Amino acid sequence: MRMRPVLIFDGDCGFCTTSVDVVQRLVRPRCEVVAWQHADLESLRVTEERARHEAPWVTPTGRAYGGARAVAKVLLSAGGVWSVLGAVLTLPPVRWAAHGVYRLVADNRGRLPGGTAACAVPGAQARRA
Rank of each mutant, 00 (worst) to 15 (best):
M1S: 14
R2P: 06
R2N: 09
M3G: 15
P5E: 04
P5L: 01
V6H: 05
V6S: 01
F9N: 01
D10F: 01
D10V: 02
D12G: 15
D12T: 13
C13N: 08
F15A: 08
F15S: 11
C16L: 10
C16V: 06
T17P: 12
T17W: 03
T17N: 11
T17Q: 09
T18Y: 09
T18D: 14
S19Y: 03
S19Q: 08
D21W: 09
V22C: 12
V23Q: 04
Q24D: 13
L26Q: 07
V27G: 09
R28W: 06
P29L: 06
R30N: 15
R30T: 15
E32I: 08
V33D: 03
V33Q: 07
V34E: 03
A35W: 01
W36C: 06
Q37T: 04
Q37K: 07
H38T: 04
H38K: 12
D40P: 14
L41V: 01
S43N: 13
L44T: 02
R45W: 10
R45V: 01
R45A: 14
V46Y: 05
V46N: 02
E49C: 03
R50C: 05
A51Y: 00
A51P: 02
R52C: 02
H53M: 07
P56S: 02
P56C: 00
P56D: 06
V58Y: 03
V58P: 00
V58N: 00
T59E: 14
T61C: 10
G62A: 08
G62Q: 04
G62K: 07
R63Y: 11
R63N: 09
Y65P: 02
G67D: 10
G67F: 10
G67H: 09
V71G: 07
A72S: 12
A72R: 03
A72M: 06
A78Q: 05
G79E: 10
G80R: 15
G80D: 10
W82M: 07
G86H: 01
G86T: 01
G86Y: 02
V88K: 12
L89Y: 15
T90M: 14
L91I: 10
P92A: 12
P93T: 05
P93I: 05
P93K: 15
P93A: 13
V94M: 12
V94P: 07
R95V: 00
W96F: 08
W96T: 06
A98C: 07
H99G: 14
H99M: 14
G100S: 08
G100N: 12
R103C: 11
V105S: 08
V105H: 04
A106T: 04
A106V: 03
D107H: 15
D107R: 15
R109H: 08
P113H: 07
P113I: 03
P113C: 07
G114R: 03
G115W: 00
T116I: 01
T116W: 03
A117N: 14
R127K: 15
A129R: 12
A129Y: 09
